[in-house]
Write a protein that binds this DNA or RNA. Sequence first.
DNA 1: AAAAGTGCTTGATCATGATCAATAAACTGT
DNA 2: ACAGTTTATTGATCATGATCAAGCACTTTT
Lengths: 232, 232
Amino acid sequence: MRELCLPAGLRPDEVSELDRMIQKKQQVKVDQYLFHEGDIAQAIYAVRVGSFKSFRLREDGVWQIVGIHLPGELFGMDALADQHHRVSVQAMETSNVCALPLAELASLSIRIPTLGRQIMRMTSRELNTSYENHELLGRRSAQERVALFLCRYADRRRNSGLKADSFDMAISRQDLSNYLGLQLETVSRAFRQLKDSGCITASRSLLEIKDINKLRELAGFCDKTTDYAYQQ
Amino acid sequence: MRELCLPAGLRPDEVSELDRMIQKKQQVKVDQYLFHEGDIAQAIYAVRVGSFKSFRLREDGVWQIVGIHLPGELFGMDALADQHHRVSVQAMETSNVCALPLAELASLSIRIPTLGRQIMRMTSRELNTSYENHELLGRRSAQERVALFLCRYADRRRNSGLKADSFDMAISRQDLSNYLGLQLETVSRAFRQLKDSGCITASRSLLEIKDINKLRELAGFCDKTTDYAYQQ
DNA sequence: AAAAGTGCTTGATCATGATCAATAAACTGT
DNA sequence: ACAGTTTATTGATCATGATCAAGCACTTTT
């Protein structure tokens, strides 16, 4: 529990109380659903290990991935508006989550006001990530999208305490292209260009960032170095 | 104050207390900034009258609008992650906002727990809207984007108690095309197509929805009727 | 080890929307 | 009312990414 983002700023006794309440070490397998769009929310979730995708499904079967969740991040806050989930969430690899049951959360956050604030912070963070996605999709070429995605993905991995220069992407090309609003083939070609320009090597899902500055440049040179980094 | 979203679910005496605290009736003119990206947050804001745009700016001068805010909606929650705003906000027309100073909000939400919950709800709602935007930008043609935007915009106007079948769009073509990730000319052509197919009439900023079903159809028939509507 | 399957890459062609360019229409201010 | 400016529309051409199609690499099955 202690490695999670959530207890930051809580007193030791509060962490213990939170600890007791949480249904932890919930192991999930690839493609397993945590919840479906339309479900009445039972809990919000903190990623411990692995990664998850949030997506919306249309009647015609077309889906759109709208969020990716890495260790230390929270998801499921989409349901806090009206108790109904507006996205579905699936594990992208073998993963491990903490479920924070909403029922207990309500009473607990009265006793530990900091907890509510912390959830608020994480939700705000997710909102900003979604805004960034809007910006990524707005006015960028295929190559820029892929390069920018890789930059941000690496940054978030670093933030989650994971290796950020060489790693296995749990995201399939299919999912990645969907997330980036591109065709599979287009993403593949973008990877080729990035490989040819020498800033990455990539074989299947294994990715290595060789030249982050070059990559940033190809991403459109747009991501300001956040001097006011997220503090918890 | 009472017409706002925020006091929903509060006791009369709590509303009064909130009422006293809020710096209200803050009049703003077109293009006036409420805050800039990077600013330390002073407050979050509730729209009373008019409309606002949230946008991110890149060093190369390119901006991307990532949010539109109508009466009854909250904005500025992007700063709740780390006290720094990650977007800039400008009024799109002569408007009127309530500022909820963060300093007072912290103490007040301890005395009125419902208030914190209500802000949480509104933030979750904004998150879902941003997810919907991701979906809109993901895999849709220009015509679908414009049609879907109009459907959702009309829905949100209705939700805000505004006329939804015939109204003045405060959003310029410039801003709209930016928001939708399209060129100005492309949006103009999409409007022409929608006009020609008889589902709208539009002269400059004045818009009239003649056939909402046809419009929904041209939007890609994707927006499920939200049977579990937002309740407050 | 061969066969079948899945996921990724590469190539060729096509269509949508971007870009360039020119009007047209509406709003400025004097 | 006038020029001057901004904002929207329409047209023509071009480029990027979508689509169609094949092949390759890596897994899983028997």
